[in-house]
Simulated assay, not measured.
Amino acid sequence: MHKQLIKTSSNQYNVVVGEGLLEQITDYFPKEYKNVLIITDSVVHDLYTNTVKKALGKNVKVSVSVVPAGEASKSIDQYYRLLTDAINHPLDRKSLIIALGGGMIGDLAGFVAATYMRGIDFIQVPTTILAHDSSVGGKVAINHPEGKNMIGNFYPPQAVIYDIRTLHSLPDKEKRSGYAEVVKHGFISETSFMEDVLKIDLTKELDAERTLNHLQKGIAVKAKIVEQDEKEGNIRKFLNFGHTLGHALESEFGYGGITHGEAVAIGMLFAIRLSESRYGNKLPYQSFYDWLRKNNYPLSIRDIKVEPLIQRMKKDKKSENEKIQMVLLEKIGEPRMVHISDQEIADHLEKFIRELG
């Protein structure tokens, strides 16, 4: 088991990572709760809800709300329904919401917790690789048809309890989605971490020890940045490497048409190409591309039009005065936030889309 304390300007909380944590989940709670609402999705519910309910004990009132699996559930309709569930259960200001699931559930349940009665406690219990990133840092949100995570807040959890045994049940597409965020942390931190991640074969069974090591390193990279810039005023934007185009692709495909990590992988490839053009440097584009191909990431976006992508990128939360900002790399471990003109984006996107085929 590995424990890391995250300290921000508004809160501090432990991130606990290890095997078999669900059965002793209350050991890692910061305090006792008598009324708990578990929010989960239809896939995770069948796998792990009963384990968590049993671990909470007989003296705790436990209710469960289940949403359909998939990014489409990060919607205003599901958000409103969950608020109604919280009222009907009923939760009060001393109650707890447990976000049991992947990044979608963490964002959705966290936003419910942040806004119900002006904010009640919630705990992240991630069950995917992707959630090693999304569960840490206190960003909670739902999507709007015009943009991902456009309705949200900064609201840190009281704890993150990450049982990596849950990763054994992940389908291949969720492994791909999660490991895109792991390699992102490598690109913005250090070459050795990035290179070690690119040795992983996601088509085979994950090695528990190596995966745990990668997750711990990824969390440490994010924690160091979040502790310095909780509200994304400066360096926290570096965590969005690959996300400007990635979020635009998610919106353009329709939420659920491509996973978050798969979209971000394409976004990182594009950001690397743009970085090479902007700085005249040589980055590991080809080795990253080969790794994505080997691990069956969907890379072709030839049916996507450039102009709608640019318009979506201009609505990205990092944009300023309708000007696109992107995270580029001077070299591995040295990200920079750069304003990009519409024409430069368009020229490079046209070429990039043709190159992917």
Rank of each mutant, 00 (worst) to 15 (best):
A159F: 08
A159Q: 05
D163E: 07
D163M: 06
I164N: 04
I164Q: 05
R165S: 10
R165I: 00
R165Y: 08
T166I: 00
T166Y: 00
P171N: 12
D172G: 14
K173L: 12
E174L: 15
K175C: 09
K175N: 08
G178R: 13
G178N: 11
Y179H: 07
E181A: 11
V182L: 15
F187R: 09
I188T: 09
I188M: 13
S189M: 01
E190K: 15
S192N: 14
S192T: 15
F193S: 11
E195S: 10
E195T: 10
D196E: 15
L198V: 07
K199M: 06
K199C: 04
I200T: 14
D201I: 02
D201F: 02
L202T: 11
E205N: 07
D207Q: 11
D207W: 00
A208D: 04
A208Y: 01
A208L: 07
T211C: 07
L212K: 15
L212A: 15
N213P: 01
N213I: 04
K217I: 06
K217S: 12
G218T: 14
A220I: 10
V221K: 08
K224L: 13
E227F: 08
E227R: 06
D229K: 04
E230H: 14
E232T: 12
E232N: 11
G233M: 10
N234R: 12
N234W: 05
K237W: 14
L239Y: 13
L239E: 11
N240D: 08
T244S: 07
T244C: 06
L245E: 07
G246Q: 09
G246L: 05
H247G: 03
H247S: 00
E252Q: 13
F253A: 08
G256F: 00
G256E: 00
G256P: 01
G257P: 05
I258N: 02
I258G: 04
T259M: 01
G261I: 01
V264N: 03
V264I: 11
A265T: 04
I266S: 05
G267D: 06
G267K: 08
M268K: 12
L269T: 11
L269Y: 10
F270M: 05
S275I: 07
E276I: 06
S277G: 07
S277Q: 15
R278H: 13
R278I: 13
Y279G: 06
Y279I: 02
G280E: 04
K282Y: 04
K282L: 10
L283Y: 03
Y285A: 02
Q286A: 04
Q286G: 00
F288D: 06
W291L: 06
R293N: 02
R293H: 03
R293A: 03
